[in-house]
Design a protein around this nucleic acid. Structure first.
Lengths: 183, 183
DNA sequence: GCATACTTGGCACTCAGTGCCACATATGGC
DNA sequence: GCCATATGTGGCACTGAGTGCCAAGTATGC
């Protein structure tokens, strides 16, 4: 149900634009009431960014599953493989690409996306902190490592989206993460 | 006028909370009409985050003013001195600290703050790109360097705010930026 | 004194989101 | 079959942010 509503909404957003599509438009197209819609989604933004919550959990689990003696930067890169697979999946590619474009040219959505990423950052930072024995509450370094790694993902994604996808996302991410080294 | 309204609003936010303070409350306290308020500020969020726009311009100018042959990471650190000074200024400290707390425990404001920071990131990335001769449109690395540097600022700020300010902000930023090295 | 531009206020409107209540539809026990 | 309860759904009225439009007021220049 949630998934069907989200897909319908995303089609409308891609066709008419995010701002131009009201909840009333959506519920009319879906044949449900406004009130019911807000039981499935807490906000309009949730229609676009809801998937991030599940996605972030996967990411945290992937990092936690890496061997503890592996260099942190390498572990992060390997954890991001789940993201790489997601974006390079051909069946989801068109839809998620269209959504990334919708997000990209709407400030409120961009803000929401980054905000969710920064929540992932906190969780990753905790894992990095545990590995390095540096408490994230008083030492900025675990947070910095997690933040830098996610900055690599975002930068690689932006290039990948705004170019013609000739260079695979994984390669761009390797290049991005190769530009930094934690000391 | 803008400044006076912002100060009044920030006092109300600090006292009653951001969500709990309506525009009606504010305009009643200020003795102006709702309509007039929206001519000075485009949104309620603008009351809290408006200063970031001026702030970001200063930051970009500071980076542009660094010598071109200086290592980029060092230039970024020096550019951030304007931020360090701002936060360590005693007269602004109480007010800006209170606002950072307001931002911190409101998701919408956090999102807005990060969104504005990410706009600064784009501008810094352009300067980094110009220095290194790597076009930011097709090469993720300039964006990564700018993003990582700003992640250091944010991480240092968060630690600085949530601890007792015993370690100066500049020192925390040095530690944060020392945890990464661009290759 | 008069014309011009700019500022302010009032009003009605759209749209997102919430609380409350009423109704429907299952599901389970007897 | 009947009743009780839980759960999903819709309707309705409300708040609060933000906008468009028009009617004032107020400054400035001639």
């Amino acid at each position: 149900m949630r998934a069907e509503l989200a897909m319908l909404a995303q089609d409308l957003f891609a066709a008419k634009g995010y701002e131009q599509t009201t909840i009333d438009d959506l519920v009319a197209a879906a044949g449900i009431s406004r009130r019911t819609f807000f039981r499935y989604f807490t906000s309009k933004e949730d229609l676009v960014l809801g998937k991030y919550d599940a996605w972030s959990q996967t990411l945290v689990e992937a990092l936690a599953a890496r061997p503890a003696d592996e260099p942190v930067w390498e572990s992060l890169r390997r954890a991001f493989d789940v993201v790489v697979e997601y974006f390079e999946d051909a069946t989801l590619a068109e839809r998620s690409l269209a959504m990334e474009k919708v997000i990209h040219d709407n400030p409120a959505l961009s803000a929401g996306e980054i905000e969710r990423i920064s929540r992932v950052q906190s969780e990753l930072a905790e894992l990095v902190a545990a590995r390095t024995g540096r408490p994230a509450a008083t030492d900025p370094r675990p947070t910095v490592v997690a933040g830098a790694a996610l900055a690599c993902v975002v930068a690689a994604k932006d290039v990948w989206i705004s170019t013609d996808r000739s260079r695979p996302f994984g390669t761009l991410l390797d290049e991005a993460m190769g530009a930094l080294k934690p000391v």
